[in-house]
Design a protein around this nucleic acid. Structure first.
Lengths: 154, 154
DNA sequence: CACAATTACCCACTTATCCCCACAATGAGA
DNA sequence: TCTCATTGTGGGGATAAGTGGGTAATTGTG
C-alpha cells in the first residue's frame, strides 16, 4: 500500500520520475504498468498500478449503460484512463490533456493513497491541505458525521 | 478491455485509423472484424469487435417484439449496425449515415469503454466532458446516489 | 455489358513518441 | 573535505505512428 507524499518535477516533455523508494516494487509487483486518470471531485490525477486499476474496471463494468449518473462515471473514469508504462529511467509520460485537467505546472506533489497515488500541482495541494485542516477543526463536534465516521477510531 | 481516449482524424474518404496500440489485439483476437452502430443517448457512435457485438445481439434477441420500448431498442441498434472490417492500414470506413448521426467532422475522439469504443466529434466530446465534470462536482454530496454508487470505492 | 461510384491498397510525408546518453544535484562514506 | 554512488533532469535522434492522396479493383446500376 502507498502512503506519504513527495515533491517531484514535471519536465518539459511532461514526464514524471517516480520516487526511488517505489520503483523496485512497481517494477517487480506490477511490471511498471500504470494507469493514470482524472479525479472526479478534485483538480488532481489518480495513478494506479494496472492490477489495482483492473479492480476498478470490474466495478465499472457492472454499472448500467442506461443510468445517466452511472454512465457518466464510466465515461469520465474510463475515457480518461491512460496507460503509462514506466520508461527505463522510471519515469511516466503524462498526456497533455490530463496535465491540463489537473492544472499541473512544473512543481508536482505525489500523494500515496493506499491502492493509488494522487498527482497534484504543488500549489493546489498546499492550498487544499490548509483548507482541509481548517475545515476539520472548524466543524469539530458541530457537524453531523456519516455513519461510518461515527465509529471511526484512530 | 479498452480504455483511454485518442484524438484521430477522419480523412476525406471517411476513413478512421485505429490507434496502433489496439491494432495487434483487434487483428489477432477479433480478426479485425468490427461493428459500428449508433448510441441511443448521446451523439456518438459505438464500435464493437464482432465477438463482443454478438453478445449484445444475444441480449437483444431475448427482448420482446411487443413491448414498444424494447422493440425500438432492437430496431435502432440492429438497424444501424454496420460491418466495418479493418483494412491493411488498420483503418475502418465509417458510412456517411453514421457519420452524420454523430455529427462527425474531421477531428474525432475515440474513447475506450471496456467492451467497445465510443466515437465522438472532438468538439462534442470536449463539451460533454466539461459538462460531466461540472455536474459531478456540483452534485457531490447533495444528490441521491444509486445503490451501486453508494458503496463505490476508487 | 459498360459506365460510374465507391471501396481497398499502396506509398510518401509529417509529426510525435520512445530510447538512450549525458550532466547536475544530492547524500553517504572514507 | 573529497570521492563515489545514486537519484533527478534535460535533450538529441532513431523509429514508429498518423495522415493524405494517387491508383487499381470491386460493386452496383442503368
Amino acid at each position: 500500500m502507498f502512503r506519504g507524499s513527495f515533491t517531484l518535477t514535471l519536465d518539459e516533455k511532461g514526464r514524471l520520475a517516480l520516487p526511488a523508494r517505489y520503483r523496485e516494487r512497481l517494477l517487480s509487483e506490477y511490471q511498471g504498468q500504470m494507469i493514470c486518470t482524472i479525479d472526479l471531485h478534485d483538480p488532481c490525477l489518480l495513478l494506479f498500478p494496472l492490477a489495482e486499476w483492473e479492480e476498478i474496471e470490474k466495478k465499472l463494468k457492472s454499472l448500467s449503460s442506461f443510468n445517466p449518473q452511472e454512465r457518466r462515471l464510466q465515461r469520465l473514469l474510463l475515457g480518461n484512463a491512460t496507460d503509462c508504462e514506466m520508461d527505463k529511467s522510471s519515469r511516466i509520460l503524462l498526456p497533455a490533456s490530463l496535465r491540463q485537467h489537473a492544472g499541473l505546472s512544473k512543481n508536482i506533489r505525489l500523494v500515496g493513497q493506499l491502492n493509488k497515488f494522487e498527482i497534484w500541482d504543488e500549489a493546489a495541494w498546499q492550498a487544499r491541505l490548509c483548507a482541509d485542516i481548517e475545515q476539520e477543526q472548524a466543524q469539530a463536534g458541530t457537524v453531523q458525521l456519516s455513519e461510518r465516521l461515527q465509529d471511526f477510531v484512530l
